[in-house]
């Protein structure tokens, strides 16, 4: 079971009369139980691609296989349980919380998916604990929270429904550096401990690189690259076009590789790893 896009095309109909293809005959095959990152310049089709995964947007052409479900172009019916099995966290978390309290918001998904009250409460509690939301926060109205807390609540609200795949559109935007790292670590744990597939759209390669199993670069509605994050290093054309920045630790490593006779790396090193390597090389 995995995620497969077969010749998927999509065009926004209402924004202007002549629109280019937002997704242009996409062919893509991804394994589940992985941490997948999607990058690309604004307007390259990342968010559009994500919204096809749970049927919010329906392809004009092509078929999408997600887990054991098949999403065909409209008017074919969406597979049952699609929204529950694929959870989507949108770019603007403050617009995803619409109940009076965070607790009620966490219960919204599970109750919609026909869980009993006790099951829903247990699911909401587990999700809240995982995201580090205490009872004080759960009793608050979404507008009383900080942006980091809102983001965590929005993710917990999606996790509460128990999705097998969790898709997040720019989850770290407007967060400070330590909250970014904390969030990415939590998401990575979802992948490692719960066996969930995590798909993240981001602009910051640095923050996802240590966790990412597979990276996808999108360009003008097409897939420009699929591979391991470090394989992207030499594709400066793609890096520039997608507005990405190579992690500073890797750049330093690359600069020191020849003078210190360091071996080639097959991943982006963390600052601590880099420090250890340099220390070993000069001692």
């Amino acid at each position: 079971m995995g995620i497969t896009f077969e010749q998927v095309s999509y065009r926004y109909k209402e924004r202007a009369l002549k629109q280019h293809l937002a997704l242009d005959h996409i062919d893509l095959s991804l394994k589940t139980n992985q941490f997948i990152t999607i990058v690309g310049a604004p307007g390259s089709g990342k968010s559009t691609l994500l919204q096809h995964l749970n049927g919010l947007l329906r392809a004009d052409h092509g078929t999408i296989h997600v887990l054991d479900m098949v999403i065909s172009p409209s008017p074919a019916k969406l597979p049952k349980g699609l929204n529950q099995r694929i959870g989507l966290v949108f770019q603007y978390p403050e617009q995803q919380l619409f109940k009076e309290t965070i607790w009620e918001d966490l219960l919204y998904g599970p109750l919609n998916f026909d869980m009993s009250k006790t099951e829903a409460e247990l699911a909401a509690k587990t999700a809240a604990e995982f995201m580090g939301l205490d009872d004080l926060i759960l009793a608050k109205c979404p507008y009383q929270l900080s942006s980091g807390q809102i983001r965590k609540a929005a993710i917990a609200a999606v996790l509460a429904a128990g999705p097998e795949i969790i898709v997040l559109d720019e989850p770290t935007a407007s967060l400070d550096a330590s909250s970014r790292l904390e969030l990415m670590t939590l998401l990575h744990r979802q992948c490692q401990e719960q066996g969930r597939t995590v798909i993240v759209v981001t602009h910051a390669l640095e923050e996802v690189a240590p966790f990412t199993d597979q990276i996808i670069v999108m360009d003008e509605g097409t897939i420009a690259f699929v591979g391991k994050p470090h394989e992207l290093v030499n594709r400066t054309d793609l890096i520039d076009k997608a507005g990405l920045q190579i992690p500073a630790a890797y750049e330093l490593y690359a600069a020191l590789q020849k003078p210190l006779r360091l071996s080639k790396l097959d991943h982006y090193p963390s600052a601590a790893e880099l420090a250890a390597v340099i220390k070993a090389a000069i001692s």
């Binding site: 919204q51 749970n54 919010l56 929204n83 529950q84 959870g87 989507l88 949108f90 603007y92 617009q95 995803q96 619409f98 919204y108 998904g109 919609n112 998916f113 609200a157 999606v158 429904a161």
Partner: peptide
Amino acid sequence: RIWKAQVSRGFS
């Protein structure tokens, strides 16, 4: 956006 967020979480 709010509509989409609700639909994704089982609103119909």
